[in-house]
């Protein structure tokens, strides 16, 4: 599986989809007007990865900001990961949030309530 790396921009996050290590990272801010356009290639990558996933996949999400347009796309990524998990591979999501960022904490709780994958909320000091 090829590795996809997208450097962060003022409106889009740093993304690493590493098929050799089974590592997925999304960091920074995700506030594009057209989130579908940004996330579609990433979701396509996950579709391919899901055909032959590694035994274990780690997912780190550390977002500073994200808009509601991105929230659906992030859920789509989690749903693809859920399919991989249901087929028997290990998948673990780490959701990072800053200690006083209750909105980001609640967003993590939202995903945790919708998605059936081991999900850890990790508080970071400012």
């Amino acid at each position: 599986m090829e590795t996809i790396i997208r450097e962060g921009s003022p409106k889009t996050p740093y993304v690493r989809l590493d098929g050799e290590k089974g590592l997925i990272e999304i960091k920074g801010r995700s506030i594009p007007e057209n989130s579908v356009e940004f996330y579609k290639p990433l979701i396509d990558w996950l579709d391919s990865y899901g055909n032959q996933p590694l035994d274990s996949t780690s997912v780190n999400v550390q977002l500073e900001y994200f808009n509601t347009s991105s929230s659906k796309c992030i859920l789509d990524i989690f749903k693809k990961l859920e399919l991989i998990y249901k087929k028997g591979s290990k998948v673990h999501i780490n959701w990072y949030y800053e200690e006083d960022d209750e909105d980001m904490f609640e967003a993590g709780e939202d995903y945790q309530s919708i998605i059936n994958i081991p999900f850890t909320m990790i508080e970071m000091e400012e």
């Binding site: 509601t68 991105s70 659906k72 859920l75 919708i114």
Partner: peptide, 25 residues
Amino acid sequence: RSIYRDILGNEEITLKGGGGLGMLD
């Protein structure tokens, strides 16, 4: 909060991406 979760979890992405979540958010 509960309706936000329902829309996030159950409705399809609209072309505009948000699925009506903006005002709720």
